[in-house]
């Protein structure tokens, strides 16, 4: 089950905790992977760990031209892009009254606009192949909101609307577009929280713990698989029951 042999996947933000695990699990299922991110060193390390069928494609997602070029580079490296995982994301947290235009624009640019451009860039190949999987990594805060994250929540909610619209357009061509919405996941980002903050969060999670990047990756693997061909426009929430929607 969930065999991706012969498929090629482009994963953005592959230098981060969740992105790296997504790349690992897709690779393990047989896919060729293109690892994209801004920091080359961790990407090279991951590629070395994976061995064959792994390509490193550095890309700064706030650079529109670089984003336009990325799907072409990925197709050149792997022969095609059958699976796109828009995982990269940044935060510029600030309370609304203090949020600058720049904080707003940079988060929307990287988290939403670059995903739009990458989706558009891979569609032609997927349409021809009559097969494609696009998985956008959103967040629980795109559904619940979060103080200090007006920009981030807007971008993540925007991804959901974008995914549903695109899903409708391309469903007849064997292309599915879905979202995975992580709750609190143990990564470098959440490591910064102190024990008291962590304890407060865990009280709100029925599962009583944070999730792991591997648990997000497993959801992505399912949505990328041939078996998920009838699932499109959906958001799979992986949050330990923190918000049941």
């Amino acid at each position: 089950m969930f065999d991706l042999t012969g498929k090629s996947a482009l994963v953005t933000g592959a230098s981060g905790g969740i992105g790296a695990d997504i790349a690992r699990v897709l690779h393990k299922a047989g896919a060729t992977v293109a690892l994209s991110g801004t920091r080359t060193a961790p990407l090279e390390e991951l590629a070395a760990e994976l061995g064959d069928r792994a390509h490193v494609l550095a890309c700064n997602l706030s650079d529109a031209e670089a984003v336009e070029a990325l799907p072409k580079q990925a197709a050149a490296a792997m022969g095609a892009v059958d699976i796109l995982v828009n995982n990269a994301g940044i935060t510029r947290d600030s309370l609304f009254m203090r949020m600058s235009d720049d904080d707003w624009a940079s988060v929307l640019d990287v988290n939403l606009t670059s995903s739009f451009r990458l989706c558009r860039g891979v569609l032609r190949g997927m349409m021809k192949a009559r097969w494609g999987r696009i998985i956008n990594i959103t967040s629980i805060v795109g559904h619940t909101g979060n103080p200090g994250q007006g920009n981030y929540a807007a971008a993540k909610a925007g991804l959901v609307g974008m995914s549903k619209s695109l899903a409708t357009e391309v469903a007849s061509r064997g292309i599915t577009v879905n979202c995975v919405a992580p709750g609190f996941i143990a990564t470098a980002m959440t490591d910064k929280l102190n024990d008291e903050q962590k304890a407060k969060i865990q009280v709100q999670i029925p599962a009583g713990r944070m999730g792991s990047p591997a648990e997000i990756a497993a959801a992505v693997l399912y949505l990328a698989s041939p078996e998920a061909g009838y699932v499109t426009g959906a958001t799979l929430h992986v949050n330990g029951g923190m918000t049941m929607i």
Partner: peptide, 11 residues
Amino acid sequence: ADSLDTVELVM
């Protein structure tokens, strides 16, 4: 053809 077909044809 549907609308998506026409886009594909043009491409």
